[in-house]
Design a protein around this nucleic acid. Structure first.
Lengths: 341, 341
DNA sequence: TTGAAAGCGCTAACAG
DNA sequence: CTGTTAGCGCTTTCAA
């Protein structure tokens, strides 16, 4: 690979000039033909600045790490696209890691920064990571932005509007005539779960409906957990006619559980899922979902991190644009009672 | 962050000694206490070698890039785990990219290498990347290993045993009594698709069954393509009673199409999918699949790449261990005729 | 058994 | 308008 000094020699200039031309140094005045010679030489030799040399000199890697629990979720793909786009726009590279690796005692974060491999982090926590563990990891490190989640007493996060999303899902069921609406939510200590539950409660409240604790389950977002939750909801009295499942993968599990119990969706019971992904179109019945702006979360997270890296005080941002949208498919319908009328 | 010279100063030695102690240079003889002082200093200062400094000096980044079309596929998660594990074992870092970005004219590959950001590539092509385009990209570059796919006239690839996998799927249907077995395959120019088709043909041949061209569709692996293929197969005569779908996501699309046509799976028609993933458990009916050793492909691919990087001639490896396994669920049953007997 | 020094490729302050 | 030079942190040859 060509080096700067080769370019310089070929163009008959010093490395310093070559460097400044190539980096488009604004406060540099060159004779046009000098400039041209450098540019041509660079093109001819297919020059790309050596990454290590630059990183060493500048003490910055222009690399960001995105740490996620589940790399293989279609939801995550949107986040990634957004983050990648935003990073590329600023000529940053994105390194992808998995947050399974990040447990309380783990030094992954500190090591990556310590080595100077990355300038900062986008961190999406797993649900098993406790607030304290997260806190100890993250402390008041300005090189970290939390995505989709927050932790008490710390600034620097980008979340989506979970309240609005869960509310939209719930309102949909209510507007269909459901009065007995249950929630299959996340684990109790998760702030994400809390916000979604809040949206659910809000929608019920505004509809003048009573929120009953016996209609809320907090087992988590996995298909299995949601399946168990659905089963328990549906086999106890009073039985709900509508289910808001706070995660689409959970909703898929719930569908399986309901089918196993011989219940018809949406005949006997309606299901709305939080988040949209392609399988939702291919489940039976196809799932009505609320699509959340994951891409934009990725974009904002990177912007936020970059801002922090250049010294701005950490912010907690809520992405409200684009707003959550209801994707109507076939898993929701008016409740049985209503339809018999 | 602490630097080597800080460690050296603290330990009262030269950087040279510090470096060699920390790197466990075998041909270095030190007094035990010198060694100890260095080690202690490193621990106290929480030292991690600066990545850029080392990369610059060694002209190697100890970083590999994995380039994939669909980051968000659960299948890919296994590949990634395997590759990550193998990379970590050799203290390499894995960078993840998407091969959408890699089109014929793209210089992503050359740029990443040119910058010295990565030492080599694991490349999983998209189906839209033609052989020529791939060839021109990959040429005889020893820093690239193709995963799951090959290209003519080039060595350096790791693929799974597609013949065995497709054969197993087909045999399953045959052993259930199906004689009219169709294949929903990949696009015609894909070598992967070709191998799977070969496995299908082989199984039919061994069962003494005739392979009919009208029972083969080559529209690709997407849910939509496979749905179209399923529809066309099932609405024309003679109608098959069993479907081998060469990709699990395609199978999900096929299921949707069959349901739309009012066909019962497996009552009217059986479906086996190539590849296993969690949704297969939650489709209706749950999908019988053939699970392929993706994790191991990831491991072998990294090993292969590392071998190439250290000068070994490129190999074409087929991962046969662990062997494909049939995951029996509910989308397959004896054909209607047989059951009526 | 240890240290001095060169140099990887780059940027930027300074000098001309 | 252009060149010289120092130095980022590291490894490694050579000398002591």
């Amino acid at each position: 690979m060509a080096t700067l000094s080769q370019i310089a020699r070929m163009a008959g200039v010093s490395v310093s000039v070559a460097s400044r031309v190539l980096n488009e140094d604004p406060k540099l005045r060159t004779r046009p033909d000098t400039r041209d010679r450098v540019l041509r030489a660079a093109r001819d030799l297919n020059y790309t600045a050596n990454y290590a040399g630059r990183a060493l000199r500048l003490a910055r890697s222009r690399t960001l790490a995105l740490i996620i629990p589940d790399v293989s979720s279609p939801l995550f793909a949107d986040l990634l696209s957004g983050a990648t786009a935003a990073a590329e726009a600023e000529e940053y590279t994105l390194l992808i890691g998995r947050s399974n690796a990040i447990t309380a005692g783990s030094d992954t974060v500190r090591r990556l920064v310590g080595e100077g491999r990355v300038d900062g982090f986008l961190l999406q926590r797993t649900d098993d990571l406790s607030d304290q563990a997260l806190e100890s990891l993250v402390a008041n490190d300005a090189r970290i932005v939390l995505v989709t989640s927050r932790t008490p007493g710390r600034r620097g996060s980008v979340v989506m509007d979970d309240v609005a999303g869960a509310r939209l899902a719930t309102e949909h069921l209510v507007s269909l005539g459901h009065t007995k609406v249950a929630l299959i939510g996340g684990v109790p200590h998760s702030d994400i779960a809390r916000r979604r539950e809040q949206g659910y409660a809000l929608a019920l409240h505004e509809a003048g409906l009573r929120r009953r604790e016996c209609w809320v389950r907090r087992l988590g977002y996995s298909p299995e957990a949601a399946a168990a939750a659905a089963e328990s909801l549906v086999t106890s009295e009073p039985r709900p006619t509508g289910l808001v499942v706070a995660n689409v993968n959970g909703a898929i599990g719930a569908l399986t559980a309901l089918r196993r119990l011989g219940l018809d969706v949406p005949g006997d019971i309606s299901v709305v899922a939080y988040h949209d992904e392609w399988v939702a179109e291919h489940t039976w019945p196809p799932l009505t979902t609320v699509k959340m702006p994951y891409y934009e979360v990725g974009v904002q997270a990177v912007k936020s991190l970059l801002a922090q890296l250049s010294g701005s005080p950490p912010q907690d941002v809520v992405v409200r644009e684009p707003a959550p949208v209801l994707v109507l498919r076939s898993s929701t319908a008016p409740p049985p009672a209503k339809r018999q009328v």
